[in-house]
């Protein structure tokens, strides 16, 4: 498994963390003790998750010639 494959795993885990954090913060915001900061954190997390996915596509395109092993 090459660095490219491991990087793909890393990007997947990072996007999962971003979207997971977003879900957690949205739940906090709509819960009984929600504050505007929770909503801000959730929105930024969604944006970061989107950026990570866009980066993932970019790096796969850029390193097309390098194998996964």
């Amino acid at each position: 498994m090459s660095l490219k494959a491991v990087h793909l795993v890393f990007v997947t885990a990072l996007s999962a963390l971003c979207f997971g954090t977003a879900v957690w913060k949205f739940r906090d915001y709509f819960g009984p003790h929600g504050v505007p900061g929770d909503l801000g954190f959730a929105v930024v997390s969604v944006l970061c998750g989107g950026l990570v996915l866009i980066y993932g596509r970019y790096f796969l395109k850029k390193l097309k010639s390098i194998g996964y092993l």
Binding site: L3, V6, V9, F10, A13, L14, L17
Partner: peptide
């Protein structure tokens, strides 16, 4: 990358 994954 392993160290980074641990932090995640």
């Amino acid at each position: 990358h392993f160290v980074d994954l641990v932090w995640i």
